[in-house]
Amino acid sequence: MADDTPLLVTREGPVVRAVMHRPERRNALSTAMGEAWDRLLAELAADASARVLVIGGAGGHFCAGLDLTEVASDETPEQKLARQTVRNRRTGARFGDIAALPQVVIAAIEGSCHAGGLGFACAADIAFATATARFAAPEVRRGLVPAQILPWVVKRTGRTAATRLVLEATVIDAAEAGRIGLVHQVLADAAALEAQVQATIAAVLEGAPGALAETKGLLAALGPIAPEGYAEAGAAAFARTASSPEAAEGIAAFKAKRKAAWVR
């Protein structure tokens, strides 16, 4: 079953591939997948022999974001608030761990790249997408907030483009994602995407490992991803909204494929 192996990790020489593997859920991020990511990232942070990490998704999709079935629960509001605070603190830190890897990280995007999927795409050093990929930050339509992904989207696209993306919460196509800088290049199809990934891997492997890692360190030194205190404030904001009546209605509406009650 996919949930037994929510993250498929393979290696060929210095190149590691991590494929999010919950195709029946468009690779939505579950607790088990998050834990698998954390194990992999800890290993890669200490592995000088790995040079490149390629992130992808199974079944023609990248990642549809947080699995909303794990947001809705029968817990008390207090229990849900505490659980969501811990979870979202870790989610934000996970994107930081991806960006901090000494390896060059490439996101290869097909299909849905929504919500938390944008975090993976923007935390990567380089992002490519097929022409049929679709991107969205739909959190406000679910009664939630894009707290953990927001700094990464702003870093990639700039504040103006990110503002429109997260407030309109509409789906944009790959061409628009390329125009605003969400991805570096749009390729015709899956075969062209893989060819570009291979070309980029070859180019990266021409660089000295230590020099590449130092260069990534210098890029990070140009400025923090978010102001001090943002991570905790973002985790708390998501936890508050996830525990709210708005989130209950928004998630119910999403599951029922209807408009939320606040839509007039």
Rank of each mutant, 00 (worst) to 15 (best):
V154Y: 09
G13Y: 14
A32V: 12
Q198F: 08
T5F: 12
L167C: 06
E12I: 13
G250K: 06
F254Y: 15
T130C: 03
V105L: 04
I109P: 02
L44W: 01
Y230N: 09
L40I: 00
H61V: 09
T10V: 10
E35V: 05
L118Q: 14
G158F: 11
V105E: 05
R258S: 05
E232L: 03
R83M: 02
Q84A: 10
L40M: 02
A161W: 08
I98W: 09
G181W: 01
G250P: 05
L144D: 05
R142S: 09
A147D: 07
R39N: 01
F120T: 04
V52N: 07
E35P: 00
K259D: 14
P224W: 13
A42Y: 00
D189E: 01
A175K: 13
G229P: 10
A124V: 00
A36E: 01
K257S: 10
E70P: 03
I98G: 06
P23H: 04
A42D: 15
Q79T: 11
E206K: 14
S244W: 01
A226D: 05
V145Q: 02
P6I: 07
S112D: 11
H61C: 11
N27M: 11
R11E: 14
E206W: 06
A237W: 08
D189L: 04
A131Q: 05
V16M: 09
E206L: 13
L150P: 12
L8Y: 08
E110N: 08
G117W: 06
A256C: 08
V183C: 01
L40S: 00
N88L: 03
G117N: 10
K80F: 03
V104M: 08
G143S: 06
A175N: 14
T215Y: 08
R39C: 01
A203F: 14
R141D: 07
A36T: 01
G217E: 11
R51N: 06
N88Q: 06
A177I: 04
L144I: 01
R25N: 12
C63E: 11
E168G: 01
P224S: 11
E110R: 13
E24W: 14
L53D: 02
A131N: 03
S112K: 12
R17Q: 07
